[in-house]
């Protein structure tokens, strides 16, 4: 009993110091204006200033696009992975890049997409000429999708892998062709995998700021970039915190929307 209490108290301590306290501080800070007064001007500004609203829209729009791209790549990938012979090995190879620091990967892509990089070299060799690839929205989304891919594949892979093979047989037995079986059985039964994948990808994508700068060339300004600017450049910690609070609220909303709903029943 005593040992259990000890473990539990260390968990509570961790929770207090590294989860609740920072959130409380951010929340408090968000009500402090640039002059040091306790007001709600920061929130008023957020919803009044068009730039912030555009950033919010950009964040949601690009996070949505990134999530959609990763989902479209991940689902078929995960599906075929479950049908390969050495599926655990292939899965490992997909997970492997997540062990590398995101900054290193971003720099790697700068090299790949640069004027004299391998992509442009190949394009030239094919006679298509060299193009400005870096610092475009396309390259930003591509790299973001690449980085998020394993986090989307993993939950979907697990969901498909756990799917009972006999349910597929039943569906075929009852007259459904392959497509109908996918649409009526496989897809709805792996929806929870998709939902957790979307959560894991969409929420971090909302506040991407390093990639927007390094790969996207700051053409897309998201809320993540705005927070960074407010804290490090304009030193308006209150406004930065306010955006942080709004991001947290958005995350909670997304979690709530994609969370597992309790099935109706009597």
């Amino acid at each position: 009993m005593k040992a259990k209490g000890l473990y539990f108290s260390s968990y509570v301590l961790w929770l207090l110091l590294f989860v609740l306290a920072p959130v409380a501080l951010i929340l408090y800070q968000s009500f402090i204006s640039i002059n040091g007064n306790f007001t709600i001007t920061n929130y008023e500004n957020f919803f009044k200033i068009v730039a912030y609203l555009r950033m919010t829209f950009n964040s949601v729009f690009y996070a949505g696009l990134i999530t959609l791209i990763t989902l479209l790549i991940s689902y078929p990938t995960a599906y075929f992975l479950t049908r390969t012979k050495y599926k655990q090995l292939w899965l490992m190879l997909i997970i492997l890049p997540t062990w590398i620091n995101i900054l290193l990967k971003a720099y790697a892509f700068i090299g790949i997409f640069s004027q004299a990089g391998p992509v442009n070299n190949s394009l030239e060799w094919l006679g298509l000429g060299s193009h400005q690839l870096l610092f475009t929205n396309t390259s930003f989304m591509l790299v973001a999708a690449y980085i998020e891919l394993p986090f989307m594949i993993l939950p979907i892979f697990n969901a498909i892998d756990e799917l009972d093979e006999s349910l597929i047989n039943v569906s075929r037995d009852l007259g459904a062709n392959k497509f109908q079986t996918f649409w009526n059985v496989t897809f709805p039964l792996t929806l929870n995998g998709i939902k957790s994948g979307v959560q894991v990808v969409f929420i971090p994508s909302l506040s991407l700021f390093m990639l927007t700068r390094l790969i996207g060339g700051n053409k897309v300004i998201t809320l993540g970039t705005a927070i960074e600017e407010n804290f490090l450049v304009t030193q308006d910690w209150g406004m930065g915190s306010t955006i942080g609070v709004i991001l947290i609220a958005a995350m909670i909303l997304i979690m709530f929307l994609t969370g597992e709903k309790k099935r109706r029943g009597r």
């Binding site: 009972d164 006999s166 349910l167 047989n169 039943v170 075929r172 037995d173 007259g175 062709n177 059985v185």
Partner: peptide, 16 residues
């Protein structure tokens, strides 16, 4: 299988 006029009851029921 989906074109045969045969249906199956599975061992583990396999209900959706």
């Amino acid at each position: 299988a989906n074109k045969r006029k045969i249906n199956t009851v599975f061992q583990d029921y396999a209900l959706f």
